[in-house]
Each structure stands twice: as structure tokens, then as C-alpha cells.
Design a binder for these strands. Sequence first.
DNA 1: TTGAGGCCAGATGTATACATCAGGACGGAC
DNA 2: GTCCGTCCTGATGTATACATCTGGCCTCAA
Lengths: 228, 228
Amino acid sequence: MLASERAYLRLREDIVSGRLAPGTALGEVEQAARLGVSRTPLREALRRLGAEGLCVIGKGRTYTVSAISPDDVRHLFELREALECQAARLAAMRGQQAIFAGLAQRFGEAAALLSPEDPEHANYYRLVADLDAALDEAMASPAIQRALSSLRSQVARARRLSKDDHARLVQAAREHQMIAGAVADGDATLAAQATAIHLRASLDAILAALAETTDHDPVVDPTPGTPA
Amino acid sequence: MLASERAYLRLREDIVSGRLAPGTALGEVEQAARLGVSRTPLREALRRLGAEGLCVIGKGRTYTVSAISPDDVRHLFELREALECQAARLAAMRGQQAIFAGLAQRFGEAAALLSPEDPEHANYYRLVADLDAALDEAMASPAIQRALSSLRSQVARARRLSKDDHARLVQAAREHQMIAGAVADGDATLAAQATAIHLRASLDAILAALAETTDHDPVVDPTPGTPA
DNA sequence: TTGAGGCCAGATGTATACATCAGGACGGAC
DNA sequence: GTCCGTCCTGATGTATACATCTGGCCTCAA
């Protein structure tokens, strides 16, 4: 695998997981040494992360891990709403009905996937990923796909802030079922509205979790570097 | 100015203007020599252009100037609609009424700016840019701003395909007036709808021009390189 | 003649040396 | 004592040498 790709993936994972806390300076030499690549591919990784918003140009020319305040999450979801509602609309107009009918049914049975035996909810999240992939293919709009993929790592980071309690996940499954159902019916307006509702509920869940956590705990692991 | 920035700006200009035709291979050594920089900053420029969609990774690892077929333009506008309608909505909710009222009035008088004495319509386009900037500031959503700025160079390229005939520009001015007016009124729904209408009309104008041109002329100047 | 296989040219990917710049610390002058 | 200017240190920006890969062409065998 390309060194620049490795560096990008590892840095992204480190930022999304919180191992690299917001505000951490990402020096080229330091990170290159840490990840075992030279500065050239690392620079490329850094620029990609910058384009995705995971890090920003601080003072001077240095990159720092971007913050993720409640307002940042709100702004992120404003973009998500624009993109995903449009995606749902287009998918409803262009997608194959059968695929989304099947997904809707699977979401209807999703409560079973949310058993406490699987604390990671791997099966459930695979189902969500399947819906995302189906929407991606159905909307058939490369430009929106690209914008969305650019957004996903930040969304993943935001989701980490939310506590996936059982009640929320059951409700989220219902929301997803509604989206898939509307797309299956070819109802573009309803699909967009269902998406908007889901995003609003997700945002509220994240903000609620954030409000709790910030009172007594740092949002993320504040460890700046790694123990060599 | 940084060499990477120079390379980026020149390559972007060359692609948007059509001097580098769609399908042109962008070899690192060749372009680095042409622009008088070394491969390192040129690579960075190439990656930025790739992220914006102005060039794509062809076979092997080579970059080529992206195509811009009617379908590409349609896809581009699907994304534009999602982003700009949301931007208009947010601006209507957050913007300062007076600014947009002033812009609406200026668009109402825009017909005077479209005199045949100014074939470039510089004054008119400055007004459009003012509206864009006002919306940018009013929506106060960094994420959407970033996505939009990433899109602008492709929009500029698409606009080059359209013939700015007088009738269309007059109509476009009315559409812009409507957007500014709706934002001034704080009417988010109307602002989004006015934006959608404007984008639809712009798209139709581009597609019509494209359909005409492709019948007897290449879409862009097919000169691949420069005469040393 | 046609297909497969390997060789070669030229590209991209990476590492590193050098140039340049920004921030801070130190010292001197007022 | 404080403020300003200079120097220094360490970073980023750039150029280039080297490694690696890709694709095409040529050769050879069936």
C-alpha cells in the first residue's frame, strides 16, 4: 500500500478516535517519524485531512487537529442535511424499488439486531452501511457522492460523541426504515423529509451527549501524542 | 507567493478556460516544466484540483483533465442545488435584512448594467459576486462554505459553456432579485425555492448552449499543451 | 500468425538535502 | 525597566536523487 495512503488512514483514525485531541499540532517531522514515513507522503495525507476538515491551518503554516464544539457539530449537520436529503430525493427518483423495500424490511426487524449480546452492534451498523451504499449507488450523482465521502470521516467523529443507548438506536432504526420505505415508494419528497427527521434526531442525540460530557469530562482523550 | 499556489491557480485557470481540454493527461514532469516549478508543489496542486473534480485519476496513476458532458453538468447542478438552497435557507434565517434588501434593489436596476457597451458585463458579474459573498457571510456555516468553494471552479467552467445572451442575463437578474428579496424578508422557504428556480434556469441555458455547440464545434479549445 | 513472456522506457512514489520563513529569545539602547 | 532590533532555532517550502511500478514493445515459441 502507498505510504501516503497509510499515513492518511492512520492519521484519520487517530483523529476520529480521539487519540489526537482537537488542538493538537501536527508537525510534519514529528508525525512522519511517528508513522514511519517521510515528510513527502505525510504532507499529502495532511492536506487531504485538511480538505476534509479534520485538521485546519493554525497560526503560521502548521496544521492542528480541528475542534468539534457543539456549534461545529451543528454546522456539520447543516451540510449533511443538504447533501443527504438531496441524495435521498435522487435515490427515490432513480433507485430500484426492490432493493430499498428489502432494506426497509430489514430495518423493521432491526430491533433483534440490537441485542445486548453484541455491544458493538456490528450487525446493525452493517445494515446502516448497506443503506448508505444503496443510496450512494441509487442517486447516481458522482458530485454528491464525492462531497458526501469527504464528509463521512467528520460524521464518524461526531458520532463517537454520541452514546449509542438502546432506545436511541431503536428509534434510529425506525427512522432508517422510513427513509428506505419512502425511497422504495419512489416518493422523493417523503424520502427527503424522513432523512431530515433522522438527521435532526441524530443531531439532538449528539448535542445532548455533548452537553452531559463536557460538564465533567473532556470530550476526547486529551493525550496529544503516542507513547513512542 | 508559494509555488504550489501559483501552480494551482495557473492549472485551474488553464482548465476552466479550456486551454487544457478535457482528457488531457497532466504529467507531473511535463506540467512542472511548463509552469516553472518542481514536481513537489505541482503534485500538491494536482491533488487539490483532483479534490475539486477538475481532474480525475485516469488509468495507471496519471491525472487527466475531467470531462464535462451534459450529464456531468447535470450532476454538478444536483450538488449545487443541494448546497445553494441550503445556503439561501440559512442566510434567510440569519442574515441581516438590510444588506439583502439593498442587493435586491441593485438587481432590480441591473438591466442598466447590461448595456452592450460592456461586453464583459463586469459590473453585473460584480453584483452577482456581491450576492454570493453576502450569502456566504450570512449563512455562517463554515462546512457549507467549504463545500461551495470547492465547487466554484467547476461551476465557473460550466458557465463558460453558456452563452450569456442579453435575454438570459436580464432574466437571471430577476431571479437573483427574487433570491435577495426572499432572504431580506427572512423567508427561508422562498429563498430556497428562488434559488432552485435560478439554478434550473441556469442549467437549462447551459444545456441548450451545449446542445447547439456540440453539433458543429468542439466544446472547448482542443489544444492539449502550450507551444513551449 | 498469434499468443505469452520478459525486457525496457518513462512515469509516479518516496526519501532527503537545501532554501526560506516564522517565532522567540537575547541583548542593547532609551 | 521596558521596548525594539537582531540573531537563532526549528519549522515548512522546494528541488532533486533514488526506488518502484506501469504499460508497451519486442522476441520467441507453439
